[in-house]
């Protein structure tokens, strides 16, 4: 399967000057069912025993015969790639913040350093 319309994204931040995010089109496993979109894990848990529950917001399958249909599927893959990448960075940021807070707490408790009196 060949994809003629391939979307891409370019990310930049203070620590990453330029990063090009491009979906892998070497395989044809692109669908409109994104890994990072759809039902939240909370809703999946709450409804897992409800046999009458159906997800009414589930996206329609893409048209495999048209270029726009394929674009919609590949764009879903790019959306997943962007969401995963940015979520990892957000988690890393929050871990670093927590480490920083923990270090400050340790310094105040163990070394008696008062940040406000430092100057």
């Amino acid at each position: 399967m060949t994809f003629e319309l391939v979307p891409s994204a370019t990310y930049s931040s203070p620590d990453i000057p330029e990063l090009i995010i491009k979906p892998d089109i070497s395989h044809g496993n692109h669908t409109t069912l994104g890994k990072t979109t759809g039902l939240s894990s909370h809703l999946v848990n709450v409804t897992k025993d409800d046999l009458n529950f159906t997800d009414k917001d589930i996206p329609s399958p893409h048209n495999k015969e048209s270029k726009l249909g394929q674009l919609r599927a590949v764009l879903t893959t790019l959306q997943d790639d962007i969401n995963t990448f940015l979520t990892e960075r957000m988690n890393k940021d929050s871990t670093e913040t927590t480490d920083k807070d923990r270090d400050l707490e340790r310094r105040i408790l163990d070394e008696g350093v008062d940040e406000e009196d430092k100057d």
Binding site: P59, Q79, N83, R89
Partner: peptide, 22 residues
């Protein structure tokens, strides 16, 4: 001003874009 706001906005725009393409 953060990865978080970029993620929320980009995800929303891509969702709308997919509807337009469909």
């Amino acid at each position: 001003d953060s990865d978080r706001v970029i993620r929320v906005a980009a995800n929303n725009v891509i969702e709308n874009l997919k509807t337009i393409i469909e």
